[in-house]
Amino acid sequence: MAFLDVTNATKKFGGFIAINDVSFSVEKGARHAIIGPNGAGKTTLFNLISGLILPTTGSIALEGQRLSRMKPHEIVRIGMARSFQKVNVFPRKTAFENVQVALIANRKLQFNPFHAAAGLFGDEIMQLLEQVRLGGDSGRRAGELAHGKQKQLELAVALAAEPKILLLDEPTAGMSIAETLSSIALIRDIVQQRGITLLFTEHDMNVVFEIASTISVLHHGEIIATGLPHEVRANDDVQRIYLGRE
């Protein structure tokens, strides 16, 4: 049994089929990339896996537990965390407070996340911020951070859920070349150090081939290839459809 199993997943919006009979599996400890052109259905697929929308047909399971009828917060509690294409943090809260809110929610504590919680989880928060290279920015408001640092903060918020599997939706989108290189190294180091399984989408092929141990290619809502990076790179259909080679 694979760690994450997507089996014959289909999602229809009216007469439009966004995801069409998609099946693939992610092994424990893998760094699995989902790539494909704009409109291929990558974000819709992530929304299905993380419980934001329900599949029309098919099933999704994490360690044998079916996710298709679970609510997103229930899926988080069994070990899945996710980031989004658009940075999803509280811009008026400090980096420290953003991670603190995530920890309070994950531990099910009865605190109002919009009021001060003093130094609750202080050491743990600082460890997370230092791991994503934001230790020196703990007191800065999230909205004041550069885009790359906001992405790092979002990663710290996701890690606060102590995930077994981490879903990253275009983690380097909008970053400069320097920020992208730094982010690649950061993501690779963290998932290796923590033993986290990684599933991610990304348009930058340099990022994909630097991080991924396995790649699946999505086109018009269907998986057209899955394999090791060198196998996918050499696939004729992938070269023609996605990599732009004839």
Rank of each mutant, 00 (worst) to 15 (best):
Ala117Trp: 12
Ala117Ser: 15
Gly119Leu: 08
Gly119Tyr: 12
Leu120Ala: 14
Leu120Thr: 09
Leu120Asp: 08
Phe121Pro: 15
Gly122Tyr: 14
Glu124His: 07
Glu124Lys: 14
Glu124Asn: 09
Glu124Cys: 01
Met126Gln: 14
Leu128Ser: 12
Leu129Gln: 11
Glu130Met: 06
Gln131Ser: 09
Val132Ala: 06
Val132Asp: 09
Val132Leu: 09
Val132Tyr: 11
Arg133Phe: 07
Arg133Trp: 05
Gly135Leu: 05
Gly136Met: 06
Gly136Ile: 02
Asp137Arg: 10
Asp137Cys: 10
Asp137Thr: 01
Ser138Ile: 06
Ser138His: 15
Gly139Ala: 10
Arg140Trp: 00
Arg141His: 04
Arg141Thr: 03
Arg141Glu: 08
Ala142Val: 02
Ala142Gly: 02
Gly143Val: 03
Glu144Lys: 01
Glu144Asp: 13
Glu144Gln: 06
Glu144Gly: 01
Leu145Glu: 00
Leu145His: 00
His147Arg: 01
Gly148Pro: 09
Lys149Ala: 12
Lys149Asn: 11
Gln150Lys: 04
Lys151Arg: 15
Gln152Trp: 03
Gln152Ala: 10
Glu154Asn: 07
Leu155Gly: 13
Leu155Lys: 06
Leu155Met: 15
Ala156Met: 04
Ala156Pro: 06
Val157Ile: 14
Ala158Lys: 13
Ala158Ser: 15
Leu159Met: 12
Leu159Ala: 07
Leu159Asn: 11
Ala160Trp: 14
Glu162Ser: 13
Lys164Pro: 03
Lys164Phe: 00
Ile165Thr: 07
Ile165Phe: 10
Ile165Arg: 10
Leu166Val: 04
Leu167Phe: 14
Asp169Leu: 06
Asp169Arg: 07
Asp169Val: 02
Asp169Ala: 02
Asp169His: 07
Asp169Ser: 04
Glu170Lys: 02
Glu170Phe: 05
Pro171Glu: 05
Thr172Pro: 05
Thr172Val: 10
Ala173Cys: 03
Gly174Arg: 01
Met175Asn: 00
Ser176Tyr: 10
Ser176Asn: 03
Ser176Cys: 07
Ile177Arg: 13
Ala178Trp: 04
Ala178Tyr: 06
Glu179Pro: 05
Glu179Ala: 10
Thr180Glu: 04
Thr180Asn: 02
Thr180Gly: 04
Ile184Trp: 06
Ile184Glu: 11
Ile184Cys: 11
Ile184Pro: 08
Ala185Met: 05
Ala185Lys: 14
Ala185Asn: 15
Leu186Glu: 08
Leu186Tyr: 08
Ile187Trp: 09
Arg188Asp: 13
Arg188His: 11
Ile190Ala: 14
Ile190Glu: 10
Val191Phe: 05
Gln192Asn: 09
Gln192Arg: 12
Gln193His: 09
Gln193Leu: 05
Arg194Trp: 05
Arg194Pro: 03
Gly195Ser: 04
Gly195Lys: 05
Ile196Ala: 01
Thr197Glu: 06
Leu198Trp: 02
Leu199Tyr: 10
Leu199Ser: 03
